[in-house]
Simulated scan of single mutants.
Amino acid sequence: MLFFRRKNNDTHPPADLLAFMSTDIHSHLVPGVDDGVQDVATSLHFIEQLQGMGIRKIITTPHIMMDRYPNSTDTLTTPYQQVQEQLLQRSSPLPFHFAAEYYLDEQFVPLLQKPLLTISGNKVLVEISFMSAPMQLAQWLFDIQAAGYQPVLAHPERYAYYHSDIQQYEQLKKQGCLLQLNLLSLTGYYGKHIQQAAEKMVAAGLPDLIGTDLHHDKHLRAITGIAANSKLRKVLDHYPFGNATL
């Protein structure tokens, strides 16, 4: 069953379009630090657009991938503060914080020796290779939990090597990992097979959280396009995502 059919959507999205989410826990809105927004003005525009669609809190998550985006609290704080200062000048009531999306590989392990940037409490957003399942994944998830954190796996529906067996998602949850679905996966934005995997996960009640994973204007346009799909909106409004608790 496909939730989404592409339609032209020239109308302004309704103010409650993303109200089901309340808190967006996955986006790339710290300017100039990864493949997300590149300037403060764009960051502010995206934040205002999300707020206008019903988002009440943003925890943005720039990449920390040591061989490509070697970010840290030190590299992220100044550009984040530039956005925060502009929000304060505009008297924006929207809470805007930053955490990170950590790429799990051998270079991640030393980072556990220092405090990690969490999306809420002890929850840490992580991602893995899109090419193949890391052989060390179970160990890395154990190490994260042993360090006092709960891993939240970003967009598991986008890892094609899990598509053949939905029980692999169930196994990740048994290993103590929460699953964060990308909103646009349910629209077909990333492709039909990813959409089908996302739909199966939702039907099985597997996702714990959802996020926009907003990087650029094309993502934003696709998000506003959901307004035209009443069937998908009904699914989103009724699924028990845990974002509002964060």
Results as ranks from 00 to 15, higher is better:
P110D: 01
V126F: 09
A99K: 03
F142M: 15
V152W: 01
Y103P: 03
V124K: 04
F108I: 12
F98I: 01
S132R: 14
A154D: 11
K114E: 14
A146R: 10
F130M: 09
L94S: 06
S120H: 15
L141W: 04
P95F: 07
L116V: 07
F96A: 03
L116M: 06
D105T: 04
E106M: 08
L104A: 09
L104K: 05
Q113C: 01
S129L: 10
W140P: 00
H97A: 11
A147P: 00
S120Q: 11
Q139C: 00
Q89R: 13
F108L: 09
Y149C: 09
L153F: 08
S91A: 13
F108S: 11
P93S: 04
Q107S: 14
K123R: 12
A133V: 02
Q145P: 00
H155Q: 15
P93D: 11
L153S: 07
G121R: 05
A99H: 05
I144K: 06
W140K: 03
P115M: 08
P95E: 13
W140A: 07
Y149M: 09
L112D: 04
E106I: 09
L94E: 06
F142K: 09
A133D: 13
S92T: 13
K123W: 06
L125E: 08
Y103L: 07
L111P: 01
V109S: 11
Q150D: 01
P151E: 10
Q107A: 14
A100W: 01
L88P: 02
F96I: 06
L116S: 02
A154W: 04
L153H: 09
M131Q: 13
S129D: 14
G148A: 08
S92K: 00
P134S: 10
P115I: 10
Y149G: 06
L104S: 06
L112F: 04
N122P: 06
A100H: 01
A146N: 10
P134G: 09
W140L: 10
Q136G: 02
F142I: 13
S120A: 15
A138P: 03
E101I: 04
K123V: 11
L94R: 00
L94P: 04
T118I: 02
H97Q: 14
